[in-house]
């Protein structure tokens, strides 16, 4: 079932993916010093919301539930899709960074790049983990506003909290913390989404 749903979503995202590639290339040149990884990751994760908006417009959830009655698979596919999208963004970012390094004859700063990608991973996990249940509950239109808040709240919290916290973490420790945090958030969000879908009337 998940294979069929992924096929449907990737098919629906084909033209958006092309735009994503163009955005990624353009951003790489505009932000040649800072890098475009974060933008690419955020854009990529936002494609998840596009698939959910399409599902809502076409009443696809009604079709998927009627065909299978498997709410867990239907919800789970969205998390798998988000993960694939974020991973695709990571790969694209690395390739672009390598290309930029060749073009501008500079060395790749892997350390800072890993930090940026981990931040992107944490941010997209947070936004995705929050957006999926809220979109199922309230629909894609309201979820766009929620998505904005989802990016703003952690950013403001981090800006507010970080200066007062005196913790130094190695890149390795930070990676572990972010991955564990993201996995826990995914799991929690997944079960909440399944519950919401079970209670939802179409």
């Amino acid at each position: 079932m998940i294979k069929a749903l992924l096929y449907k979503d990737f098919n629906a995202l084909k033209r958006y993916a092309r735009i994503m590639l163009v955005v990624a290339v353009v951003c790489s040149f505009i932000f040649k010093e800072q890098g475009s990884s974060l933008i690419v990751m955020i854009y990529s994760a936002s494609l998840l919301l596009t698939t959910m908006a399409i599902d809502e417009r076409e009443h696809f959830l009604r079709r998927a539930i009627s065909d299978s009655g498997r709410n867990k698979a239907i919800v789970g596919e969205k998390y798998i899709l988000l993960f694939i999208l974020v991973m695709a963004a990571v790969v694209i970012s690395i390739i672009l960074e390598m290309v930029m390094a060749v073009i501008y004859k500079r060395s790749i700063e892997w350390g800072s790049m890993i930090i940026i990608m981990l931040s992107g991973f944490a941010l997209t996990s947070f936004s995705g983990g929050t957006t999926i249940p809220l979109t199922i509950k309230y629909g894609a239109e309201k979820a766009r506003i929620i998505l904005l808040l989802c990016y703003m709240v952690p950013a403001i919290l981090m800006m507010w909290l970080l200066p007062s916290v005196n913790i130094t973490l190695s890149t390795f420790t930070l990676s572990i913390v972010i991955i564990i945090f993201s996995m826990l958030l995914y799991l929690f969000s997944f079960f909440v989404s399944v519950k919401i879908l079970e209670k939802k009337d179409f």
Binding site: K3, Y7, K8, R62, D67
Partner: peptide
């Protein structure tokens, strides 16, 4: 129909086969 509007008949066939 509840499929994405970009789908063709062949896409629906492939989706059905996978599902």
């Amino acid at each position: 129909t509840s499929f994405p509007l970009d789908f063709t008949i062949n896409d629906i066939g492939k989706y059905g086969k996978l599902l």
